[in-house]
Design a protein around this nucleic acid. Structure first.
Lengths: 229, 229
DNA sequence: TGCATATTCAAGCGTTCTATTGAACAGTTG
DNA sequence: CAACTGTTCAATAGAACGCTTGAATATGCA
């Protein structure tokens, strides 16, 4: 038995937050947001990459638009959607963090897709130091479109498809960190396996480019260092 | 037209994240989580404070339990629910951040409930410095149960109901920062208005106790200072 | 043992959500 | 102007959701 207490929310504060949070409660929309976090895309492109119908994708985008999470602009015959704010990507990332922390179902699914042994044992700060001191190289295996639109500072762009051909140029004395779209993307794992098959020391970076950008910024804020790249 | 690209999610990675995110897409559950972020509570207490039926509250809690966001333990005749992890509170806080950033509806609702002019113009770090150097006092106006369970480091606990009686003891030369449950809670605003009516310089702290704890920790990590309190 | 209390369960009802289908609506290009 | 393309809209069926009601379960206490 507890004494009653004014809930102090006459207005729809919780309702507005919930309606935006509910937008993140659909796999289809999470996929869309993850893709938009890499680079702007047309409806058709999103539909193709999420394997959903165009109409369905358009409807999801409509909701995301109404929820002020994405913006549209016309470009010729198509409409290009983009995240309304980089911080939207970070919130999505936070949800993946949460699932990793607190959902056994997620961890099982993740084990199947991404593997564990490829993960980098180093923190982002440690990796960054290794890279800055030339003992390691950070490879971004995403499409060039994506790595141009949302570049990872200090990373070399080698799309996964070209990685095998580039292997010959890689130094055997360095450590390789591989980054892709983030947790829910298997590309980095594939890249790591490719590198390891050639005897190179390679690890997967768990964080998404957006999260890396944020961390880089806060690292710079707390202890400024000279920028490589 | 974009070249097709393996979506690389055979397993239900997005589905698992979405199912957890969907839990946060309901106002009733957000209220529950906000309350649990302050202190553990029984089903009945939660039902009373959220003004929902007990059965309904129980069902929401069941979902939250299945989603591994809360834990239960028996205590005599009632069952006490608590957040499974402090980081769950931070994710909820993040969603409120997002709404504040990106939902005009939220900002309107917030203006009605919480007011703007009471907000502290200082960052958390600045406030903490003021407090450590004795120019300011941080007042936690939550119930003593809550302020004991999730204390705010450096804060004095004066429940809102007792604030008026305590006014006489407050120094006129100091600045007062008032903290409550966070963004969606009007108590701090009421406290600030009370203090200002007496001519004291007072501001509302937007962050929740959980967020303050996190920030305090990372501040300590980056530039260690001696701990007051 | 039996009653009171706190919580959960089961069923039901109205609403909302997702994905599908087919049509409508621009802009673009010949 | 007409054909085409990319996108949105409208209508729909099926599932899921949120809340209510009433009953069932389990613990504490006389």
């Amino acid at each position: 038995m507890v004494k009653q207490q004014q809930s102090s929310s006459h207005a729809g504060l919780f309702e507005t937050v919930a309606s935006q949070a509910a937008l993140l409660g659909s796999p289809a929309r999470l996929k869309i947001l993850l893709l938009l976090a890499q680079s702007p895309r047309s409806v058709e492109a999103l539909a193709l990459e999420t394997r959903e119908s165009v109409a369905n994708t358009s409807q999801h985008l409509k909701k995301l638009r109404e929820g002020e999470l994405v913006n549209v602009e016309r470009s010729g015959v198509s409409r290009i959607y983009r995240l309304a704010d980089e911080r939207v990507a970070l919130v999505v990332e936070t949800l993946f963090d949460l699932a990793e922390l607190r959902s056994t179902a997620y961890r099982e699914a993740s084990r199947l897709l991404v593997g564990q042994e490829e993960l980098s044992p180093l923190s982002v700060e440690q990796m960054r130091r290794e890279i800055q001191e030339d003992r390691a190289v950070l490879i971004d295996v995403r499409d060039t479109v994506e790595s141009c639109e949302t570049p990872v500072s200090g990373a070399v762009s080698i799309p996964l498809g070209e990685l095998e051909a580039e292997l010959i140029k890689l130094s055997r004395t360095k450590t390789y960190f591989v980054v892709c779209r983030g947790r829910a993307c298997g590309q980095a794992t594939q890249g790591v396996r490719l590198l390891r098959k050639k005897g190179l020391q390679a690890y997967r970076v768990k964080e998404s480019p957006a999260a890396l950008r944020l961390k880089a910024r806060s690292l710079l804020a707390s202890k400024p260092r000279k920028d490589t790249t």
